[in-house]
Design a protein around this nucleic acid. Structure first.
Lengths: 235, 235
DNA sequence: TTATGCTTTATTGGATCCAATATACAATAT
DNA sequence: ATATTGTATATTGGATCCAATAAAGCATAA
Protein backbone atom coordinates (compact mmCIF):
# COMPACT_ATOMS: atom_id res chain seq x y z
CA UNK A 1 0.00 0.00 0.00
CA UNK A 2 2.99 2.19 0.29
CA UNK A 3 3.86 1.56 -3.30
CA UNK A 4 3.69 4.48 -5.65
CA UNK A 5 3.57 4.06 -9.38
CA UNK A 6 4.41 7.59 -10.36
CA UNK A 7 8.15 7.28 -10.20
CA UNK A 8 8.70 8.71 -6.75
CA UNK A 9 10.25 6.61 -4.03
CA UNK A 10 7.90 4.79 -1.72
CA UNK A 11 7.55 6.41 1.66
CA UNK A 12 8.16 4.02 4.48
CA UNK A 13 6.77 4.64 7.94
CA UNK A 14 10.28 5.27 9.25
CA UNK A 15 11.99 7.23 6.54
CA UNK A 16 15.56 6.94 7.60
CA UNK A 17 16.96 8.52 4.47
CA UNK A 18 15.95 11.96 5.64
CA UNK A 19 16.86 11.68 9.30
CA UNK A 20 19.96 13.49 10.44
CA UNK A 21 23.23 11.59 10.60
CA UNK A 22 25.53 11.92 13.58
CA UNK A 23 27.74 14.16 11.53
CA UNK A 24 24.74 16.40 10.76
CA UNK A 25 23.88 16.73 14.42
CA UNK A 26 27.43 17.59 15.38
CA UNK A 27 27.71 20.05 12.53
CA UNK A 28 24.58 21.87 13.64
CA UNK A 29 25.65 21.90 17.26
CA UNK A 30 29.11 23.24 16.52
CA UNK A 31 27.81 25.80 14.08
CA UNK A 32 25.37 26.97 16.69
CA UNK A 33 28.01 27.13 19.40
CA UNK A 34 30.26 29.17 17.15
CA UNK A 35 27.72 31.70 15.97
CA UNK A 36 26.41 32.12 19.50
CA UNK A 37 29.92 32.86 20.63
CA UNK A 38 30.04 29.94 23.05
CA UNK A 39 33.25 28.91 21.38
CA UNK A 40 35.36 32.01 21.14
CA UNK A 41 37.33 33.11 18.12
CA UNK A 42 40.82 31.67 18.02
CA UNK A 43 39.79 28.82 20.26
CA UNK A 44 40.87 25.42 18.98
CA UNK A 45 38.37 22.59 18.73
CA UNK A 46 39.64 19.17 19.72
CA UNK A 47 38.14 16.24 17.87
CA UNK A 48 38.36 13.99 20.90
CA UNK A 49 36.60 16.38 23.26
CA UNK A 50 33.69 16.86 20.85
CA UNK A 51 33.50 13.13 20.30
CA UNK A 52 33.26 12.54 24.03
CA UNK A 53 30.52 15.14 24.38
CA UNK A 54 28.36 13.19 21.95
CA UNK A 55 29.55 9.70 22.87
CA UNK A 56 30.70 8.96 19.37
CA UNK A 57 33.98 8.33 17.61
CA UNK A 58 36.02 11.07 16.00
CA UNK A 59 34.92 10.14 12.48
CA UNK A 60 31.63 12.04 12.37
CA UNK A 61 33.30 14.90 14.23
CA UNK A 62 35.90 15.22 11.53
CA UNK A 63 33.27 15.27 8.82
CA UNK A 64 31.43 18.02 10.65
CA UNK A 65 34.63 20.01 10.99
CA UNK A 66 35.35 19.71 7.29
CA UNK A 67 31.95 21.14 6.55
CA UNK A 68 32.45 24.02 8.96
CA UNK A 69 35.74 24.70 7.25
CA UNK A 70 34.09 24.71 3.83
CA UNK A 71 31.74 27.40 5.13
CA UNK A 72 34.57 29.42 6.58
CA UNK A 73 33.55 29.21 10.21
CA UNK A 74 36.77 27.46 11.20
CA UNK A 75 40.18 27.17 9.66
CA UNK A 76 42.15 23.99 9.90
CA UNK A 77 45.89 23.44 9.98
CA UNK A 78 47.09 19.98 9.13
CA UNK A 79 48.17 17.89 12.11
CA UNK A 80 47.42 20.75 14.47
CA UNK A 81 43.70 21.19 14.56
CA UNK A 82 40.92 23.59 13.72
CA UNK A 83 40.38 26.98 15.28
CA UNK A 84 37.36 29.21 15.17
CA UNK A 85 38.04 31.82 12.50
CA UNK A 86 38.59 35.36 13.66
CA UNK A 87 37.61 38.29 11.50
CA UNK A 88 39.58 41.49 11.17
CA UNK A 89 37.70 44.78 11.13
CA UNK A 90 38.32 44.95 7.38
CA UNK A 91 36.77 41.54 6.88
CA UNK A 92 33.80 42.45 9.03
CA UNK A 93 33.27 45.62 7.04
CA UNK A 94 33.44 43.64 3.83
CA UNK A 95 30.83 41.15 5.00
CA UNK A 96 28.46 43.91 6.02
CA UNK A 97 28.90 45.54 2.63
CA UNK A 98 28.18 42.17 1.11
CA UNK A 99 25.02 41.71 3.13
CA UNK A 100 23.87 45.24 2.38
CA UNK A 101 24.19 44.65 -1.34
CA UNK A 102 22.44 41.29 -1.35
CA UNK A 103 19.74 41.92 1.19
CA UNK A 104 18.64 45.23 -0.27
CA UNK A 105 18.38 43.57 -3.66
CA UNK A 106 16.42 40.67 -2.27
CA UNK A 107 13.93 42.77 -0.36
CA UNK A 108 13.33 44.91 -3.43
CA UNK A 109 12.45 41.74 -5.29
CA UNK A 110 10.33 40.39 -2.46
CA UNK A 111 8.05 43.36 -1.87
CA UNK A 112 6.04 43.09 -5.11
CA UNK A 113 5.45 39.40 -4.37
CA UNK A 114 4.93 39.66 -0.67
CA UNK A 115 2.09 37.64 0.78
CA UNK A 116 0.08 39.03 3.69
CA UNK A 117 1.07 36.01 5.69
CA UNK A 118 4.77 36.81 5.39
CA UNK A 119 4.14 40.39 6.42
CA UNK A 120 2.15 39.16 9.38
CA UNK A 121 4.95 36.83 10.39
CA UNK A 122 7.52 39.58 10.10
CA UNK A 123 5.43 41.76 12.36
CA UNK A 124 5.25 39.02 14.96
CA UNK A 125 9.00 38.52 14.97
CA UNK A 126 9.53 42.26 15.10
CA UNK A 127 7.29 42.56 18.13
CA UNK A 128 8.83 39.52 19.77
CA UNK A 129 12.23 41.10 19.24
CA UNK A 130 10.96 44.25 20.95
CA UNK A 131 9.53 42.41 23.92
CA UNK A 132 12.16 39.76 24.44
CA UNK A 133 14.27 40.30 27.53
CA UNK A 134 16.77 37.52 27.09
CA UNK A 135 19.59 38.94 24.93
CA UNK A 136 20.57 35.45 23.86
CA UNK A 137 17.39 35.27 21.80
CA UNK A 138 17.67 38.61 20.02
CA UNK A 139 19.91 37.30 17.30
CA UNK A 140 17.50 34.62 16.24
CA UNK A 141 14.41 36.85 16.34
CA UNK A 142 16.21 39.49 14.34
CA UNK A 143 17.13 36.88 11.76
CA UNK A 144 13.60 35.54 11.49
CA UNK A 145 12.21 39.04 11.05
CA UNK A 146 14.44 39.72 8.09
CA UNK A 147 13.93 36.30 6.56
CA UNK A 148 10.16 36.67 6.68
CA UNK A 149 10.55 39.79 4.56
CA UNK A 150 12.96 38.14 2.13
CA UNK A 151 11.20 34.85 1.65
CA UNK A 152 8.77 35.81 -1.08
CA UNK A 153 11.54 36.94 -3.38
CA UNK A 154 11.72 33.29 -4.39
CA UNK A 155 15.50 33.29 -4.48
CA UNK A 156 16.67 30.36 -2.36
CA UNK A 157 20.28 30.69 -3.46
CA UNK A 158 20.45 34.31 -2.37
CA UNK A 159 19.01 33.39 1.00
CA UNK A 160 21.44 30.56 1.47
CA UNK A 161 24.40 32.81 0.79
CA UNK A 162 23.01 35.54 2.99
CA UNK A 163 22.69 33.02 5.75
CA UNK A 164 26.29 31.88 5.57
CA UNK A 165 27.45 35.49 5.49
CA UNK A 166 25.30 36.19 8.50
CA UNK A 167 26.73 33.19 10.30
CA UNK A 168 30.19 34.65 10.10
CA UNK A 169 29.34 37.89 11.83
CA UNK A 170 26.48 36.89 14.06
CA UNK A 171 28.55 36.41 17.18
CA UNK A 172 29.89 39.95 16.94
CA UNK A 173 26.43 41.34 16.43
CA UNK A 174 25.21 39.44 19.46
CA UNK A 175 27.96 40.81 21.61
CA UNK A 176 27.18 44.31 20.45
CA UNK A 177 23.44 43.92 21.03
CA UNK A 178 24.00 42.60 24.52
CA UNK A 179 26.52 45.19 25.62
CA UNK A 180 25.27 48.36 24.00
CA UNK A 181 21.98 50.15 23.58
CA UNK A 182 21.94 49.36 19.90
CA UNK A 183 18.71 47.42 20.13
CA UNK A 184 16.78 50.66 20.31
CA UNK A 185 17.99 51.76 16.93
CA UNK A 186 17.39 48.32 15.44
CA UNK A 187 13.83 48.56 16.70
CA UNK A 188 13.00 51.81 14.95
CA UNK A 189 14.82 50.78 11.78
CA UNK A 190 12.92 47.50 11.70
CA UNK A 191 9.68 49.37 11.96
CA UNK A 192 10.62 51.65 9.08
CA UNK A 193 11.56 48.70 6.90
CA UNK A 194 8.37 46.91 7.81
CA UNK A 195 6.24 49.91 6.98
CA UNK A 196 7.89 50.34 3.60
CA UNK A 197 7.11 46.70 2.83
CA UNK A 198 3.52 47.09 4.02
CA UNK A 199 3.17 50.12 1.76
CA UNK A 200 4.49 48.07 -1.13
CA UNK A 201 7.41 50.42 -1.68
CA UNK A 202 10.21 48.06 -2.61
CA UNK A 203 12.69 50.79 -3.45
CA UNK A 204 12.34 52.38 -0.04
CA UNK A 205 12.52 49.04 1.70
CA UNK A 206 15.75 48.35 -0.15
CA UNK A 207 17.26 51.72 0.75
CA UNK A 208 16.30 51.32 4.39
CA UNK A 209 17.64 47.77 4.55
CA UNK A 210 20.88 48.88 3.01
CA UNK A 211 21.28 51.70 5.51
CA UNK A 212 20.22 49.45 8.37
CA UNK A 213 22.94 46.93 7.61
CA UNK A 214 25.69 49.40 6.81
CA UNK A 215 24.97 51.39 9.97
CA UNK A 216 25.00 48.25 12.07
CA UNK A 217 28.32 47.29 10.50
CA UNK A 218 29.98 50.61 11.13
CA UNK A 219 28.81 50.87 14.71
CA UNK A 220 29.90 47.29 15.27
CA UNK A 221 33.38 48.05 14.03
CA UNK A 222 33.56 51.09 16.22
CA UNK A 223 32.44 48.94 19.11
CA UNK A 224 35.01 46.25 18.43
CA UNK A 225 37.96 48.57 17.97
CA UNK A 226 37.26 50.14 21.33
CA UNK A 227 39.56 48.47 23.85
CA UNK A 228 37.17 48.94 26.72
CA UNK A 229 34.62 46.77 25.00
CA UNK A 230 37.15 44.11 24.23
CA UNK A 231 37.84 43.87 27.92
CA UNK A 232 34.16 43.86 28.75
CA UNK A 233 33.55 41.00 26.38
CA UNK A 234 36.11 38.83 28.05
CA UNK A 235 34.46 38.96 31.41
CA UNK B 1 68.72 28.94 12.97
CA UNK B 2 65.17 28.33 11.98
CA UNK B 3 64.02 29.72 15.24
CA UNK B 4 62.15 32.95 15.16
CA UNK B 5 61.67 35.09 18.19
CA UNK B 6 58.92 37.31 16.94
CA UNK B 7 56.04 35.06 17.81
CA UNK B 8 55.56 33.43 14.43
CA UNK B 9 56.01 29.72 14.02
CA UNK B 10 59.42 28.49 12.92
CA UNK B 11 59.59 27.45 9.30
CA UNK B 12 61.00 24.00 8.85
CA UNK B 13 62.54 22.87 5.61
CA UNK B 14 59.66 20.51 5.02
CA UNK B 15 56.65 22.41 6.22
CA UNK B 16 54.12 19.65 6.40
CA UNK B 17 51.46 21.77 8.02
CA UNK B 18 50.72 23.51 4.76
CA UNK B 19 50.91 20.57 2.41
CA UNK B 20 47.66 19.21 1.11
CA UNK B 21 46.05 16.29 2.88
CA UNK B 22 44.62 13.35 0.96
CA UNK B 23 41.19 14.73 1.55
CA UNK B 24 42.27 18.06 0.06
CA UNK B 25 43.59 16.39 -3.06
CA UNK B 26 40.44 14.37 -3.55
CA UNK B 27 38.28 17.40 -2.92
CA UNK B 28 40.09 19.40 -5.58
CA UNK B 29 39.99 16.55 -8.06
CA UNK B 30 36.29 15.91 -7.61
CA UNK B 31 35.44 19.58 -7.68
CA UNK B 32 37.36 19.90 -10.92
CA UNK B 33 35.72 16.86 -12.45
CA UNK B 34 32.30 18.21 -11.57
CA UNK B 35 32.74 21.73 -12.85
CA UNK B 36 34.35 20.45 -16.04
CA UNK B 37 31.34 18.25 -16.58
CA UNK B 38 33.35 15.04 -16.50
CA UNK B 39 30.92 13.78 -13.90
CA UNK B 40 27.49 14.54 -15.23
CA UNK B 41 24.64 15.99 -13.25
CA UNK B 42 22.54 13.39 -11.51
CA UNK B 43 25.39 10.92 -11.60
CA UNK B 44 26.06 9.26 -8.26
CA UNK B 45 29.54 9.17 -6.83
CA UNK B 46 30.57 5.95 -5.12
CA UNK B 47 32.96 6.29 -2.23
CA UNK B 48 34.64 3.01 -3.00
CA UNK B 49 35.31 3.79 -6.64
CA UNK B 50 36.90 7.13 -5.80
CA UNK B 51 38.94 5.51 -3.06
CA UNK B 52 40.26 2.95 -5.51
CA UNK B 53 41.18 5.65 -8.01
CA UNK B 54 43.45 7.25 -5.43
CA UNK B 55 44.55 4.07 -3.66
CA UNK B 56 43.25 5.26 -0.32
CA UNK B 57 40.53 4.27 2.07
CA UNK B 58 37.05 5.72 1.99
CA UNK B 59 37.67 8.03 4.96
CA UNK B 60 39.31 10.93 3.12
CA UNK B 61 36.82 10.46 0.28
CA UNK B 62 33.95 10.94 2.66
CA UNK B 63 35.48 14.09 4.06
CA UNK B 64 35.91 15.47 0.57
CA UNK B 65 32.31 14.65 -0.25
CA UNK B 66 31.08 16.45 2.85
CA UNK B 67 32.94 19.53 1.75
CA UNK B 68 31.51 19.34 -1.75
CA UNK B 69 28.08 19.02 -0.20
CA UNK B 70 28.68 22.08 1.97
CA UNK B 71 29.42 24.01 -1.20
CA UNK B 72 26.35 22.72 -2.95
CA UNK B 73 28.10 20.85 -5.73
CA UNK B 74 26.63 17.51 -4.66
CA UNK B 75 23.66 16.50 -2.60
CA UNK B 76 23.80 13.53 -0.34
CA UNK B 77 21.05 11.17 0.77
CA UNK B 78 21.73 9.14 3.84
CA UNK B 79 22.63 5.50 3.20
CA UNK B 80 22.22 6.00 -0.53
CA UNK B 81 25.03 8.18 -1.70
CA UNK B 82 25.83 11.54 -3.17
CA UNK B 83 24.81 12.75 -6.59
CA UNK B 84 26.06 15.69 -8.58
CA UNK B 85 23.51 18.44 -8.09
CA UNK B 86 21.42 19.37 -11.08
CA UNK B 87 20.17 22.91 -11.53
CA UNK B 88 16.77 23.81 -12.87
CA UNK B 89 16.51 26.71 -15.34
CA UNK B 90 15.08 28.82 -12.51
CA UNK B 91 18.09 28.07 -10.33
CA UNK B 92 20.48 28.83 -13.15
CA UNK B 93 18.74 32.12 -13.78
CA UNK B 94 18.99 32.96 -10.09
CA UNK B 95 22.69 32.26 -9.98
CA UNK B 96 23.36 34.43 -13.00
CA UNK B 97 21.36 37.24 -11.41
CA UNK B 98 23.44 36.71 -8.30
CA UNK B 99 26.69 36.90 -10.21
CA UNK B 100 25.56 39.95 -12.14
CA UNK B 101 24.81 41.79 -8.93
CA UNK B 102 28.05 40.87 -7.19
CA UNK B 103 30.46 41.09 -10.07
CA UNK B 104 29.23 44.44 -11.31
CA UNK B 105 29.59 45.80 -7.80
CA UNK B 106 33.07 44.36 -7.43
CA UNK B 107 34.35 45.67 -10.72
CA UNK B 108 33.01 49.14 -9.91
CA UNK B 109 35.04 49.01 -6.72
CA UNK B 110 38.11 47.63 -8.44
CA UNK B 111 38.46 50.15 -11.25
CA UNK B 112 39.55 53.12 -9.11
CA UNK B 113 42.19 50.92 -7.46
CA UNK B 114 43.27 49.01 -10.51
CA UNK B 115 46.99 48.53 -10.95
CA UNK B 116 48.48 48.53 -14.42
CA UNK B 117 49.78 45.06 -13.78
CA UNK B 118 46.27 43.69 -13.26
CA UNK B 119 45.08 45.38 -16.40
CA UNK B 120 47.98 43.91 -18.28
CA UNK B 121 47.21 40.46 -16.95
CA UNK B 122 43.57 40.78 -17.90
CA UNK B 123 44.59 41.69 -21.42
CA UNK B 124 46.78 38.64 -21.66
CA UNK B 125 44.02 36.32 -20.54
CA UNK B 126 41.59 38.02 -22.89
CA UNK B 127 43.91 37.50 -25.82
CA UNK B 128 44.66 33.95 -24.79
CA UNK B 129 40.93 33.32 -24.65
CA UNK B 130 40.62 34.68 -28.17
CA UNK B 131 43.43 32.58 -29.55
CA UNK B 132 42.84 29.35 -27.70
CA UNK B 133 41.52 26.55 -29.87
CA UNK B 134 40.90 23.92 -27.22
CA UNK B 135 37.38 24.54 -25.92
CA UNK B 136 38.22 22.76 -22.70
CA UNK B 137 40.45 25.67 -21.73
CA UNK B 138 38.04 28.49 -22.47
CA UNK B 139 36.32 28.27 -19.12
CA UNK B 140 39.50 28.76 -17.17
CA UNK B 141 40.82 31.59 -19.32
CA UNK B 142 37.49 33.35 -19.11
CA UNK B 143 37.60 33.01 -15.34
CA UNK B 144 41.13 34.35 -15.06
CA UNK B 145 40.26 37.34 -17.24
CA UNK B 146 37.44 38.37 -14.98
CA UNK B 147 39.37 37.70 -11.80
CA UNK B 148 42.26 39.90 -12.93
CA UNK B 149 39.79 42.75 -13.24
CA UNK B 150 38.18 42.06 -9.87
CA UNK B 151 41.30 41.49 -7.81
CA UNK B 152 42.15 45.06 -6.92
CA UNK B 153 38.78 45.63 -5.33
CA UNK B 154 40.39 44.15 -2.24
CA UNK B 155 37.33 42.14 -1.34
CA UNK B 156 38.42 38.55 -0.80
CA UNK B 157 35.08 37.48 0.60
CA UNK B 158 33.21 38.71 -2.45
CA UNK B 159 35.62 36.86 -4.69
CA UNK B 160 35.28 33.67 -2.73
CA UNK B 161 31.50 33.74 -2.99
CA UNK B 162 31.65 34.63 -6.66
CA UNK B 163 33.86 31.65 -7.19
CA UNK B 164 31.52 29.18 -5.55
CA UNK B 165 28.61 30.63 -7.52
CA UNK B 166 30.65 30.27 -10.68
CA UNK B 167 31.51 26.69 -9.80
CA UNK B 168 27.86 25.76 -9.81
CA UNK B 169 27.18 26.93 -13.33
CA UNK B 170 30.53 26.51 -15.00
CA UNK B 171 29.81 23.16 -16.59
CA UNK B 172 26.73 24.57 -18.31
CA UNK B 173 28.69 27.54 -19.57
CA UNK B 174 31.36 25.23 -20.89
CA UNK B 175 28.85 23.14 -22.76
CA UNK B 176 27.34 26.24 -24.28
CA UNK B 177 30.71 27.69 -25.28
CA UNK B 178 31.73 24.44 -26.92
CA UNK B 179 28.53 23.84 -28.81
CA UNK B 180 27.47 27.29 -29.91
CA UNK B 181 29.03 30.34 -31.44
CA UNK B 182 28.70 32.22 -28.19
CA UNK B 183 32.42 32.77 -27.87
CA UNK B 184 32.28 35.50 -30.45
CA UNK B 185 29.96 37.59 -28.36
CA UNK B 186 31.99 36.92 -25.23
CA UNK B 187 35.02 38.19 -27.09
CA UNK B 188 33.56 41.56 -28.02
CA UNK B 189 31.95 41.99 -24.61
CA UNK B 190 35.24 41.25 -22.91
CA UNK B 191 36.91 43.88 -24.99
CA UNK B 192 34.28 46.46 -24.07
CA UNK B 193 34.65 45.68 -20.37
CA UNK B 194 38.40 45.83 -20.62
CA UNK B 195 38.32 49.20 -22.39
CA UNK B 196 36.02 50.66 -19.77
CA UNK B 197 38.45 49.56 -17.07
CA UNK B 198 41.40 50.95 -18.97
CA UNK B 199 39.56 54.27 -19.29
CA UNK B 200 38.95 54.21 -15.56
CA UNK B 201 35.19 54.29 -15.99
CA UNK B 202 34.00 52.04 -13.19
CA UNK B 203 30.33 52.74 -13.76
CA UNK B 204 30.50 51.69 -17.36
CA UNK B 205 32.55 48.62 -16.52
CA UNK B 206 29.90 47.66 -13.99
CA UNK B 207 27.06 48.15 -16.44
CA UNK B 208 28.84 46.14 -19.13
CA UNK B 209 29.70 43.37 -16.72
CA UNK B 210 26.15 43.18 -15.56
CA UNK B 211 24.84 42.96 -19.10
CA UNK B 212 27.55 40.48 -20.05
CA UNK B 213 26.53 38.09 -17.30
CA UNK B 214 22.77 38.46 -17.66
CA UNK B 215 22.98 37.99 -21.42
CA UNK B 216 25.11 34.91 -21.01
CA UNK B 217 22.61 33.55 -18.50
CA UNK B 218 19.60 34.10 -20.71
CA UNK B 219 21.20 32.64 -23.77
CA UNK B 220 22.39 29.70 -21.70
CA UNK B 221 18.87 29.01 -20.49
CA UNK B 222 17.56 29.22 -23.99
CA UNK B 223 20.27 26.82 -25.05
CA UNK B 224 19.49 24.36 -22.27
CA UNK B 225 15.74 24.36 -22.74
CA UNK B 226 16.18 23.49 -26.40
CA UNK B 227 15.75 19.75 -26.70
CA UNK B 228 18.09 19.45 -29.66
CA UNK B 229 20.95 20.72 -27.58
CA UNK B 230 20.16 18.34 -24.76
CA UNK B 231 20.57 15.51 -27.21
CA UNK B 232 23.75 16.97 -28.62
CA UNK B 233 25.27 17.22 -25.18
CA UNK B 234 24.69 13.55 -24.49
CA UNK B 235 26.72 12.40 -27.44
C1' DT C 1 0.74 -11.68 -15.13
C1' DT C 2 1.13 -9.03 -10.94
C1' DA C 3 1.71 -8.15 -6.33
C1' DT C 4 3.90 -9.63 -1.92
C1' DG C 5 7.34 -11.24 1.09
C1' DC C 6 12.01 -13.15 1.80
C1' DT C 7 16.98 -13.37 0.84
C1' DT C 8 21.15 -11.70 -0.96
C1' DT C 9 24.22 -8.11 -2.23
C1' DA C 10 26.08 -3.49 -2.53
C1' DT C 11 26.81 0.62 -0.14
C1' DT C 12 26.95 3.86 3.42
C1' DG C 13 27.83 5.37 8.45
C1' DG C 14 30.49 4.69 12.39
C1' DA C 15 34.02 2.45 15.70
C1' DT C 16 38.43 0.97 16.57
C1' DC C 17 43.10 0.69 15.63
C1' DC C 18 47.63 2.37 13.77
C1' DA C 19 50.92 5.73 11.75
C1' DA C 20 52.55 10.41 11.24
C1' DT C 21 53.20 14.81 13.14
C1' DA C 22 53.50 18.54 16.49
C1' DT C 23 54.20 20.16 21.06
C1' DA C 24 55.93 20.14 25.75
C1' DC C 25 59.49 18.88 28.62
C1' DA C 26 63.80 17.22 30.29
C1' DA C 27 68.69 16.71 29.66
C1' DT C 28 72.89 18.44 27.90
C1' DA C 29 76.27 21.44 26.01
C1' DT C 30 78.08 26.09 25.16
C1' DA D 1 71.65 31.72 31.46
C1' DT D 2 70.70 30.23 26.74
C1' DA D 3 70.49 27.44 23.04
C1' DT D 4 70.20 22.60 21.39
C1' DT D 5 69.13 17.94 21.33
C1' DG D 6 66.52 14.02 22.52
C1' DT D 7 62.33 11.94 24.50
C1' DA D 8 57.55 11.52 25.97
C1' DT D 9 52.88 12.84 25.20
C1' DA D 10 48.91 14.61 22.82
C1' DT D 11 46.63 15.06 18.59
C1' DT D 12 45.55 14.51 13.94
C1' DG D 13 45.11 11.68 9.42
C1' DG D 14 44.15 7.41 7.54
C1' DA D 15 43.20 2.17 7.26
C1' DT D 16 40.58 -1.57 8.51
C1' DC D 17 36.71 -3.64 10.37
C1' DC D 18 31.71 -3.96 11.69
C1' DA D 19 26.77 -2.56 11.77
C1' DA D 20 22.81 -0.49 9.53
C1' DT D 21 20.35 0.41 5.49
C1' DA D 22 18.78 0.27 0.68
C1' DA D 23 18.32 -1.98 -3.65
C1' DA D 24 18.04 -6.01 -6.44
C1' DG D 25 16.83 -10.61 -7.19
C1' DC D 26 13.95 -14.58 -6.34
C1' DA D 27 10.30 -17.35 -4.89
C1' DT D 28 5.53 -17.77 -3.98
C1' DA D 29 0.66 -16.77 -4.02
C1' DA D 30 -3.37 -14.51 -5.79
Amino acid sequence: MNQSRNGTAPLKATDLSRTASTSDIIFDALRDAIIRGEIGEGETIRQESIARMFNVSRIPVREALKRLEAQGLVTSVRFKGVVVSALSPAEIREIFAFRALLESDVIAGAVPAMRPQSLQEARQYMEAFDREEDPAKWGELNWHFHMALYRDAGRPYFLEVIRTANDRVERYVRAQLELTGSRGRARTEHEAIFNACAKGDGEQAAALTRAHILDAGESLIEFLTNDDNARKRDE
